[in-house]
């Protein structure tokens, strides 16, 4: 069996990548993808914990399924907003969407 630490390390790396993406990227879609990366790191954590620490119960797995669902809805919503902004202004860059102070 692969030790639990490996999963956690993987998850931490993926999470950190996601955080970096959110902070470094200026394109709304890229930010969203980075957030997805973070959420997947969370999923890895949950599934790994569920498999290793909580045998017989599947709370972690259920949590992961719900996170996937919510993330999908979130992306759907965010894309809808990006599209609306794009139609009004023709940009998906967060920097250019600066009628207000950022």
């Amino acid at each position: 069996m692969v030790p639990l630490e490996n999963y956690l390390a993987l998850s931490a790396i993926v999470f950190a990548l996601g955080v970096y993406g959110v902070l470094a990227r200026r394109n709304a879609v890229m930010i969203l993808m980075s957030v997805e990366l973070m959420l997947n790191a969370v999923n890895i954590n949950f599934v790994a914990f569920a498999a290793y620490l909580d045998p017989g119960r599947i709370v972690g797995a259920i949590f992961a399924v719900f996170i996937i669902t919510v993330a999908a809805a979130e992306v759907g919503l965010a894309l809808a907003i990006v599209i609306r902004l794009f139609r009004n202004r023709a940009t998906a860059n967060v920097d250019e969407a600066a009628t207000m102070k950022w």
Binding site: M38, R84, L85, A97, A98
Partner: peptide, 19 residues
């Protein structure tokens, strides 16, 4: 436009924070 932008910023940061 301001409403769109507000919503976009809100959701991006919101998604980040919920992550």
């Amino acid at each position: 436009l301001r409403s769109n932008e507000a919503s976009l910023k809100y959701i991006l940061l919101g998604a980040f924070s919920s992550a």
